[in-house]
């Protein structure tokens, strides 16, 4: 049983390696907008030491961590899988020992592994290079903080994954369902604290962010590492329930899709 997972994982792994040079290029390119943003912040700080509790070093750290979390947890599989569904290429999944969901999951996991292996060294190099130019504070590390960070990474991955899965399943009904990704990006970017530390948001948005569970994707884990936030185990019930809700929606869509797909004769 473990063997069949390993086989599937390896297959997607090898496939991802084929595109390794592209992956590296894309990673480097995606860093540029963040670098430019950091330059903007540099000019904002303009030799001021501290703005609303953040120093320039902490802001830089913030954005680098946003990249880090995004690289490890964001979902990019919607485009490909929706196309597979629209082109009717998923018949196999009704007869094979793996369900569609499991395959999407394993495929995504293995692709991320390759991506992480290729880009983390680059990322570390960039971090190091930036710390030569600007002063970047050390992390507030302790076992509890690290644990909390990892848990938030898992939460972020789960939210991204299930939102992605829902979009993929919408492909059974909508032509061009992958465009729904835009909504995913906007929601997450606005409400997770990934485009600017929450402190700097206008009040109404600040309240919204604090209310909704998306903050656990970026704002909270980064806050943990920077020593500006703490979390308790009980408050994790909230994002976890949200993930369960997303999972339920995904399962409902899958059942409906199965009925529609198989009754129509493929």
């Amino acid at each position: 049983m473990w063997n069949k997972w390993k086989t599937l994982y390896t297959r997607y792994f090898i496939n991802a390696i084929e595109y390794r040079s592209e992956l590296i290029v894309w990673f480097l390119l995606s860093v540029i907008p963040t670098l430019i943003l950091i330059l903007v912040w540099q000019s904002i700080f303009n030799s001021q030491g501290n703005i609303q509790g953040y120093g320039l070093g902490e802001i830089i750290q913030y954005y680098l961590l946003v990249i880090f979390i995004g690289e490890l947890t964001a979902s990019h599989f919607e485009n490909w899988w929706v196309r597979m569904i629209r082109e009717g290429k998923i018949d196999l999944f009704f007869t094979r020992p793996f369900s569609l969901q499991q395959t999407i999951f394993i495929g995504d996991l293995s692709r991320k592994t390759v991506y992480a292996l290729l880009t983390l060294p680059l990322f570390a190099a960039i971090w190091w290079a930036m710390s030569q130019v600007w002063v970047i504070q050390p992390f507030n590390l302790s076992a509890a903080v690290l644990l909390g960070f990892v848990v938030c990474l898992a939460i972020s991955y789960a939210i991204y994954f299930f939102m992605g899965l829902i979009i993929v399943f919408m492909g059974f009904w909508l032509e061009g369902a992958q465009s729904l990704e835009h909504f995913k990006w906007i929601i997450v970017t606005l409400l997770s604290g990934s485009f600017i530390p929450v402190t700097f948001l206008p009040d109404w948005l600040k309240n919204l962010v604090n209310l909704l569970p998306f903050k656990y994707m970026y704002a909270v884990p980064i806050g943990l590492l920077q020593g500006k936030t703490t979390i308790s185990i009980t408050e994790l019930i909230y994002p976890l329930s949200f993930i369960v809700c997303l999972w339920i929606i995904a399962q409902i869509l899958w059942r409906l899709a199965l009925k529609r797909y198989t009754s129509a004769g493929g």
């Binding site: 903007v40 912040w41 904002i44 001021q48 906007i186 600017i196 700097f200």
Partner: peptide
Amino acid sequence: MWTIFNFFFFAAIVNVTGVIA
């Protein structure tokens, strides 16, 4: 929607100190 978002993005940043470069 993306235009509005972009506007938001930079408005938030500009409003931190009211001046960029």
